[in-house]
């Protein structure tokens, strides 16, 4: 139950530090939205180049929990689906591979927004 938690902690922490440096050292108009978009796109590109996979092997959740892991899964899904189904797979693969996350985000996001009120 506790295997790989140390590499997950270290790699996950380091990926977050990259995000922090991106916010603190670039221009002021960088918001959390920019950070999230950059990580998803970056993860997808690194995934396509085959550079993210080793990180997932070493660090498990340390690489899949940060949003770059979401991007990695999108790219990996698209490439695997192309391998199986050809051109149509480029369109279906990414969303298929991340469907659980997207559906969970919509459902839980909606549910919480309905049940709670902002506290300020």
């Amino acid at each position: 139950m506790f295997e790989m938690i140390i590499p997950a902690f270290i790699v996950g922490g380091l990926i977050c530090v990259i995000g922090q440096l991106f916010m603190d050292l670039t221009k002021v108009s960088v918001t959390p939205a920019h950070v999230l978009v950059t990580f998803v796109t970056g993860g997808a590109i690194l995934g396509a180049l085959g550079w993210y996979q080793p990180l997932v092997k070493i660090a498990g959740a340390g690489a899949t929990v940060p949003l770059s892991g979401f991007g990695y899964n999108l790219a990996k899904g698209a490439m695997e689906a192309v391998g199986k189904r050809g051109l149509i797979g480029a369109f279906s693969g990414g969303v298929e591979a991340t469907a659980v996350g997207i559906a969970a985000a919509v459902l839980f996001g909606y549910g919480v927004a309905i049940l709670f009120n902002p506290k300020g």
């Binding site: 139950m1 506790f2 790989m4 938690i5 997950a8 902690f9 270290i10 790699v11 996950g12 922490g13 380091l14 990926i15 977050c16 530090v17 995000g19 922090q20 660090a59 498990g60 959740a61 340390g62 899949t64 929990v65 940060p66």
Partner: peptide, 16 residues
């Protein structure tokens, strides 16, 4: 960021 981000990923690893 390192410690909190690392901690969240560690919890993720335990759940995995």
């Amino acid at each position: 960021a390192f410690f909190v981000g690392g901690l969240i990923c560690m919890i993720g690893q335990i759940i995995i």
